[in-house]
Computed example of a mutant assay.
Amino acid sequence: MAQAVEEWYKQMPIITRSYLTAAIVTTVGCSLEIISPYNLYLNPNLVVRQYEFWRLITNFLYFRKMGNSNFI
């Protein structure tokens, strides 16, 4: 089973694989409270005035915290 997942992952195009990996890392990081979602959302004032350019990309990577409470 693990070999099938690994093969599936390796056969993805590089852009899709990179996006999937970044989205999973960002979402898991927020779920484990390593990263705050408030550091990821798009705020044009912070991008322009404080040069926080990562906000242009990270807002597309975070979906929401994972857990059982999301399914209720």
Rank of each mutant, 00 (worst) to 15 (best):
P44W: 02
M66H: 03
Y41I: 09
P37W: 05
R17I: 15
M1C: 07
I15W: 08
V28H: 06
P44H: 03
F60I: 01
A23C: 06
A22G: 10
E33P: 01
S36Y: 03
W8A: 15
A22H: 02
N70W: 00
V5T: 12
A22K: 01
L20P: 05
E6I: 10
C30E: 04
Q3R: 01
A4Q: 12
Q11V: 13
I34K: 01
N70F: 00
L32E: 07
N43M: 02
Q3F: 10
I35P: 03
L61F: 14
N59G: 00
R49Y: 12
I14F: 11
Y51G: 14
I15C: 05
C30Q: 02
P13M: 03
P13V: 11
N45Y: 03
I15M: 11
F71G: 02
Y38M: 13
Y38A: 14
Q11A: 15
F63S: 10
V25L: 11
T58Y: 03
F53H: 12
L40P: 03
N39C: 10
G29L: 08
L40D: 07
T21Y: 13
Y62V: 14
F60H: 08
T27I: 09
N39Y: 03
N68V: 05
W54M: 13
V48A: 14
A2C: 07
C30V: 15
F53Q: 09
P37K: 04
V28M: 08
S69H: 02
T26E: 05
V48Y: 11
Y19Q: 04
I24T: 03
Q50T: 14
A2L: 05
M12E: 15
L46S: 08
T21I: 09
E33R: 06
L20K: 09
L32F: 12
L32M: 12
E52W: 06
E33G: 05
A23G: 05
L56M: 13
W8P: 00
Y38Q: 14
R64W: 10
I24M: 06
I24E: 02
R64V: 04
G67E: 02
M12S: 15
I35H: 04
P44C: 04
I72L: 11
N68M: 01
T27S: 13
L40W: 07
K65T: 10
A22E: 07
S18F: 08
L40N: 03
L42A: 02
T16M: 06
Y51P: 07
F71H: 01
A22Q: 05
C30I: 08
N59I: 01
I57Q: 06
Q50P: 00
S31N: 05
K65G: 12
L61K: 04
A23I: 01
P44F: 05
M66N: 07
L20H: 08
S69L: 06
Y9G: 13
V5K: 08
I15P: 04
F63T: 09
F63K: 01
L20E: 11
N45P: 01
Y19L: 10
A4M: 12
K65A: 11
V5M: 12
V48W: 09
K10D: 15
N70D: 04
Y9R: 13
Y38F: 12
I24H: 03
V25H: 04
I34A: 09
E6N: 14
Q50G: 08
E6D: 15
L40I: 10
G29P: 07
V47L: 09
